[in-house]
Design a protein around this nucleic acid. Sequence first.
DNA 1: CGCGTCCTTGACACCAGTCAAGCGTTGTGG
DNA 2: CCACAACGCTTGACTGGTGTCAAGGACGCG
Lengths: 247, 247
Amino acid sequence: MPNPLVSKLSHGASLSEADVARLTEISAPMAKVPPHTDLIREGDRPDKVQLVMSGIACRYKILPDGGRQIMAFLLPGDICDLHVTLLGHMDHSIATVSACDVVAIPRDTILELTNHHPAITRALWWSTLVDEAILREWLVGMGQRSAEKRLAHLFCEIFLRMQVAGMANGNSILFPLTQSELGDTLGLSVVHVNRMIQNLREDGLISLDRKVLEVHDMPGLMRAGGFDPNYLHLRKSEERGVLGAVS
Amino acid sequence: MPNPLVSKLSHGASLSEADVARLTEISAPMAKVPPHTDLIREGDRPDKVQLVMSGIACRYKILPDGGRQIMAFLLPGDICDLHVTLLGHMDHSIATVSACDVVAIPRDTILELTNHHPAITRALWWSTLVDEAILREWLVGMGQRSAEKRLAHLFCEIFLRMQVAGMANGNSILFPLTQSELGDTLGLSVVHVNRMIQNLREDGLISLDRKVLEVHDMPGLMRAGGFDPNYLHLRKSEERGVLGAVS
DNA sequence: CGCGTCCTTGACACCAGTCAAGCGTTGTGG
DNA sequence: CCACAACGCTTGACTGGTGTCAAGGACGCG
């Protein structure tokens, strides 16, 4: 039963056993949050950092006309707002999608980590930079890819990220998003999301039923989505930059 | 003749005279870079930080099918890649759009700044967080806003950001982007960008000719784009969070 | 067991893309 | 200094991908 925070962060830096122990300790006391519940709302001034340990949450923004855009998914091991304190207030909201286990980490704990655990600090940094890279890739998709490609791309991404967090089960994962939420993510109507899912199914690439996503042909799905995992920065540590403390 | 780096960063933190002097010093030795020239390419491992002092540059990605998506504009005072060293390699490219004056800041200088100038450090942080907020807002636009709204929104954003950098001239700014580049930014065809510009012109909101953008009716333009400047986090320092060192 | 939420399907409308052509500006070399 | 070439802008006609509207069906929760 691996700790998803540990699973994820060890892709970002080589953690010592002490680091792992500290992370495990931190991520212990969890609150159960029901589905579709805001964790932070636009305008809030967060004083703690929230960490998703199970389930899926999302960043989103609601427009005056009622439209909703989902801007990121937070999977197990993902941290919500490491640094937003600097900006003073949230410019978007975060809500659970499925039921989630969430840990609230006091600011002081984060400061202690960044002062005494350089490897953890690196790993946290790495994870925020990956979040940003994902955001850029989503923008690329919205601007340049067709509806079907965007969907396939998103399936690839979530599958891989789930795998990294230790939450994949062979070639299937728990996938609690409704088609309407997929629509709000990809800028598509529910109806069209549905049509595109049918396409991917008929092509024998995936099946998606009862909140279980099964990938039958990963290479095919990646081809269908024009997916290149590079932007997730998952390569092994030797290949990473040599780095320097960045502050 | 204000230094755009100083103009911009003083929106992010209250800088002492010593801070301003240090920043001015840093941003002195400039290289002139011609238009449409890569500053960093996807795959590169940057060892320095680049700073745009005049002109406009952009982050972009080219897809296998030849499509290009522009993911950000770097205006005077903007820093290209403060932290990417941590990821090891660039997952996108940065190129000039117009001719630019660019300063290359050695990594050591950045480290020195972050070690001895807390206000500058805060301001640099603030600026990367704003960059991220802008990215999110672009995603919202791509997913939820019509072509015309997106265009109007972008005009508002660039105008305000130019103003913050001290580069506005009354109600007009230098605007060197071609319609084709606007298309690559907004995920639209050149033809459609052109049609939407005509609309905005006919509505008396803007004029755009010979690389000069004039905004005739800012409130109207903001309404047309559904623009809310909140995400640029430009409010005065008293209103900002109380902050804490974030590491 | 029944009601609500989500999924599915079809018909039709429209926003935005593509193709094609002409025109104005800019910059460059003779 | 003019001529021409390259590039960017503009316009029209047609196409096509996605949105909208509408209705029925299948789960799944209470």
